[in-house]
Structures are given as structure tokens and as C-alpha cells.
């Protein structure tokens, strides 16, 4: 098999960087961490730059590297203390514009509380619209794990929204 290699690694990553940064934002939850995630992803992938440049679908490979980086970052950051300020500043960067209770803001805050793999599942399912089998392949886990994360996510989000809505109605 031969693959024509007419692109450089630089061509590939520049072409895909905007989409990768969007994915990074969804995974990391804020601009600064997302840009760090993008950089570490590209640096790691650059170790096999020629191979990546020759791939038929380099975006899939780069996504996978980013998801691994995200999971690893999450493992590292779990040892840090997540302050209320850091969560608030992350979600406040782009507010929904609504004055009252906004479910999207609440969902974004809730997403910040998830473990990396569960957040990855929700991002890939509901942002990237990927089917479970692809998500499982990207994350290196079983499809059952993907479905479990998604199911638990929806259940937890339902509970959180219900609680907050009741709270907002009562005040």
C-alpha cells in the first residue's frame, strides 16, 4: 500500500487546529486550558509528524491524541483543588446572555464537575455527534462504558436541573 505524501505535518495541523481547539474547549471547559490542551496534543503528535501527514484521516488520529491528553491531564489535575472561583471564571467567560436561570449555564457548570472520560463521552456524543462505537474506539473503552457514562450523565444532569429549577421557582 502506498499513500501519497503531499502534505507536511505543519499543513495538516494548521488545517485542523481550529476544529481541534473547539474540541479542546468542550473538553477543558475554558479557553486557557483548551489552548494548553491543543499545544500538548500537537507536540505529542509531532513525534510522528511524517506519519500523521501521510494519514488518510489525520483528524481522527489527532482527536484521539487529544482525548488521551485530556484524560491524562484530568488525572493530574484531580490532585489540585478546584476552587469555586476557577469554576465560575471558566463558565463566566461566555455567558448565555440570560439574566435568569439558564439551563445552558447550569449544564456548563455541571460539565466542569465530571471526570475526564465521562465528559469526553458527552462531548463526543452531543457535540461531535459520533456514534458510540466510534467513541469507544477513540477512548479505548467498551461501548457499554460509553453508554453507561451517557446514561449516568443524563440522569445526573436531570437531577441537577430539576433541583435548580425548583430552587429558582421558590426564591
Amino acid at each position: 500500500m502506498s499513500i501519497a505524501r503531499t502534505r507536511s505535518y505543519e499543513d495538516v495541523v494548521i488545517a485542523h487546529a481550529p476544529a481541534l481547539l473547539r474540541l479542546a474547549v468542550m473538553l477543558a471547559g475554558n479557553r486557557a486550558d483548551a489552548e494548553d490542551l491543543l499545544q500538548s496534543t500537537l507536540l505529542r503528535a509531532a513525534r510522528h509528524g511524517d506519519r500523521v501527514a501521510g494519514m488518510g484521516a489525520p483528524a481522527a488520529y489527532l482527536r484521539r491524541v487529544m482525548l488521551n491528553e485530556h484524560t491524562s491531564n484530568g488525572r493530574r489535575s484531580r490532585r489540585r483543588v478546584a476552587t469555586v472561583e476557577s469554576v465560575q471564571s471558566a463558565e463566566a467567560t461566555v455567558a448565555s446572555g440570560a439574566d435568569a436561570f439558564d439551563e445552558r449555564d447550569e449544564a456548563w457548570r455541571w460539565l466542569a464537575t465530571l471526570k475526564p472520560q465521562q465528559r469526553s463521552v458527552l462531548v463526543l456524543r452531543y457535540y461531535e455527534d459520533l456514534p458510540d462505537v466510534e467513541i469507544a474506539a477513540l477512548l479505548g473503552c467498551a461501548e457499554a462504558t460509553v453508554r453507561s457514562h451517557a446514561l449516568r450523565g443524563l440522569t445526573a444532569l436531570r437531577g441537577r436541573l430539576t433541583t435548580h429549577r425548583r430552587g429558582s421557582e421558590w426564591t
Binding site: S8, V13, A17, L20, L21, E35, L38, A46, H48, G49
Partner: peptide
């Protein structure tokens, strides 16, 4: 910003 970040990395591939 994404493309700027990307342009700062790729030399490693050579």
C-alpha cells in the same frame, strides 16, 4: 489562535 499555536509546534516532525 488555534492556527498560531499549531504553527509553533510542527518543526518537531522533521
Amino acid at each position: 489562535t488555534a492556527q498560531t499555536l499549531a504553527a509553533s509546534v510542527p518543526a518537531l516532525g522533521r
